[in-house]
């Protein structure tokens, strides 16, 4: 019975069914299924979709569809894990967002999905995120990595500002900063004082592992 629910939860994500995934997550908890197990099948489902994308069989709408389905079930499971005071196995906590002045969300969404598929805990702050919001999230979630996305190089001052505040608040040593986006370069990353850069979403997920030596 419990296996069936978990199987269905996984299937819901593989079939991009957000509402179904959320309902099954609730049902799982009602049936006293271990939330860590539920989390595992969800991560496994997103990883499968990520692998399919990597092989060229699946496409962006599939990737984003799976991420959406996972995110609709995630808060339900996470709340239960926190309530039980369980520890979640994770490669690390990543706070992600598109910087202020930029409303491009596609690259950022891809990175979130792939980071989750790698096994990171991901907090997606959305687009047009101010420096203050980034800092607040880094503190709140005790982030290991701060990932900023931007399509346009014009946003450099804003990204510098984030790094400057991190330094001011003595957070710079506690969190790795990575940047990515269509027209950014290695040089740009160095210039603003980031720890790492990758132009692509799949590359970004791998970069996160390298930054944390995982």
């Amino acid at each position: 019975m419990s296996n069936e629910i978990l199987e269905n939860l996984k299937k819901a994500i593989l079939e991009y069914e957000s509402e179904k995934a959320a309902n099954l997550a609730r049902e799982a908890l009602e049936k006293k299924i271990d939330p860590a197990k539920a989390l595992n099948v969800m991560t496994e489902a997103v990883r499968q979709v990520g692998d399919g994308f990597g092989r060229g069989e699946l496409w962006l709408p599939d990737l984003v569809g799976a991420a959406d389905a996972m995110q609709s079930a995630m808060p339900i499971i996470q709340k239960e894990i926190e309530r039980k005071g369980m520890k979640v196995e994770t490669l690390g906590v990543v706070v992600v967002g598109t910087v202020f002045g930029d409303i491009h969300s596609i690259g950022k969404t891809m990175v979130c999905t792939l980071l989750a598929a790698e096994g990171f805990t991901v907090y997606d702050l959305g687009v047009n995120v101010t420096a203050e919001k980034f800092i607040e999230a880094v503190k709140k979630y005790k982030a290991d990595i701060l990932a900023m996305s931007a399509l346009m190089t014009m946003t450099a001052p804003e990204q510098r500002k984030v790094i400057a505040i991190l330094k001011k608040e003595n957070l710079r040593d506690k969190v790795k900063v990575m940047v990515g986006g269509g027209s950014l370069t290695e040089e740009f990353a160095k210039n603003i004082g980031a720890d790492g850069y990758d132009p692509t979403a799949p590359g970004g997920a791998k970069l996160a592992r390298r930054l944390l030596n995982k």
Binding site: L60, I106, G107, A201
Partner: peptide, 8 residues
């Protein structure tokens, strides 16, 4: 259309 591989 969107490039459904790169997102660009």
């Amino acid at each position: 259309p969107q490039n459904m591989r790169q997102g660009s």
